[in-house]
Amino acid sequence: MDRSRRALLKFGGALAGTALTVLGGLAVRTGKTRSPPRLRPPGAGSEDRLLARCVRCSQCIQACPTTVLKSAANDGPLGLGVPLFVPRDQPCDLCAGKSAMMCIEACPTDALQPLASRRDVRIGIAVVNTDTCLPYVGVSCRACWHACPFPREAIVIDGQGHPVIDRDACVGCGLCEYACLTPDPSIRVVPLSER
């Protein structure tokens, strides 16, 4: 009696553990996508890749020479401590003048993957709002073009003076969004997952 009861308990425990694992895993899988799309540091790749590899150690955040990177806290428990940045507050200057991008150098788990060149950075894509962008409404302006680290490649000024984004060349650093003159930026970087 006692032996069979113990066996039953063990079986029940194993079943409960398996159920907890599977249900917990599925809950985590759906739960982690709840957070709004964020702009992540260079080399992060897709959001899924970053969330799977980041150990939330803050080393990239601390290494950022311009303190652009922040520790996420509003993205729920699973996104806590994952690095992000908000270009309108502070854009990523891709560590201009530095020998390498410091966040990538600092990452201990390759969650931020080493890149051959700064042109390989893919944080997001700049999108122009043609309703408010000054050249589109008739005012001459090249603020984004001047701010862009790859002018004439990522941002091209077309025949009518409008800024046009080259989706293959834009790295998503957000310098244009930071520089935009309209109070509500008329050029915004959207994360790659939103493209």
Binding site: T21, V22, G24, G25, L26, A27, V28, R29, K32, A52
Partner: peptide, 8 residues
Amino acid sequence: GISTIGAI
């Protein structure tokens, strides 16, 4: 197990 299934 949860880390494997949840990919986090």
